[in-house]
């Protein structure tokens, strides 16, 4: 007899494999999507590079960031955008449907964590091109940035820090999405709030220091765009600061805990208010 915790972990892992296996099978029925996504990713990337080049026409730097540094930020943005398409969009935008059709009841009656179910039930492969393009852009930009950046990344500690900050970025992004999507338990009418998030996060395409001070504050403390792309990019370029790193990890933990709390609160509301 295995201890219950291990059994649970294995059960969750197997559930996840099953979730993703079935949803990939369903998505791959539409091969044309692959071509469309590829064209769309390449088009968006070309457009973003074009605009970035326009912004660099005025001088060698943008908010103190070199061309290759800004490319790392853009790469991170593309990576996160792909992650959104893969996991966040397909799962979290469905919560409102569950609320509207009443199938949330079924989710709540499964012997598995409902937040886990709602967040990981499906996966869409169509974000993968963007994720690959983002990773490619980051690699290329780091190589361009020259030996200085590469030297900063040579120690295992620096690599670990960069990965941790990237993970923190993913966690923050997930929590923001989840919180907005979970609001539909109370307000079915704000189902499109996640769209607002998606369009506002476009700000993460550029380093945070490129913005005027007021916006910088907004993008750090209200809508933590800074922690999504700028902070991990600095770590990747080997100039991560301890303060920002700690701040980023703390924000990530707070966001995750916040999403968890909100969900528990939402469940209590749902189970005492629905009919």
């Amino acid at each position: 007899m295995r201890p219950p915790l291990i059994r649970d972990i294995r059960r969750y892992a197997r559930s996840l494999r099953c979730f993703w296996g079935t949803s990939l099978a369903a998505e791959l029925e539409y091969p044309l999507n692959a071509a469309i996504e590829l064209v769309s990713v390449l088009g968006n990337l070309a457009g973003s590079l074009f605009v970035l080049q326009l912004l660099f026409a005025g001088g060698p730097s943008l908010g103190g960031w070199s061309w290759s540094g800004a490319l790392v930020v853009l790469g991170l943005y593309t990576l996160l955008d792909g992650f959104t398409t893969c996991l966040l969009q397909p799962n979290l935008s469905r919560i409102v449907n569950h609320v509207q059709t009443g199938t949330l009841d079924y989710v709540l009656l499964k012997p598995i964590d409902s937040q886990f179910w709602l967040s990981a039930r499906t996966v869409s492969p169509w974000g993968l091109p963007a994720m690959a393009a983002g990773l490619g852009l980051i690699g290329w930009a780091l190589a361009q940035a020259g030996p200085g950046a590469a030297a900063g990344l040579r120690s295992p500690g620096a690599v670990l820090l960069a990965l941790a900050l990237l993970l923190a970025a993913l966690v923050i992004l997930y929590s923001l999405w989840f919180v907005l999507a979970a609001l539909s338990i109370w307000f079915v009418k704000v189902w499109n709030a996640t769209e607002v998030l998606r369009y506002t996060l476009v700000a993460g395409r550029y380093p945070i220091s490129a913005y005027p001070p007021a916006l910088r504050l907004l993008f750090t403390f209200v809508l933590p765009v800074a922690f999504l792309t700028t902070v991990p990019a600095e770590a990747l370029l080997g100039r991560g600061s301890a303060l920002w790193a700690v701040g980023s990890l703390v924000v990530a933990l707070l966001c995750l805990a916040g999403s968890r709390l909100l969900w528990r609160f939402a469940q209590r509301f749902y189970t005492s208010a629905s009919s």
């Binding site: 099953c18 099978a25 369903a26």
Partner: peptide
């Protein structure tokens, strides 16, 4: 496919 998902969830 859905049944396999349920089997996994219920262990």
């Amino acid at each position: 496919d859905s049944l396999r998902v349920n089997a996994a969830v219920y262990g």
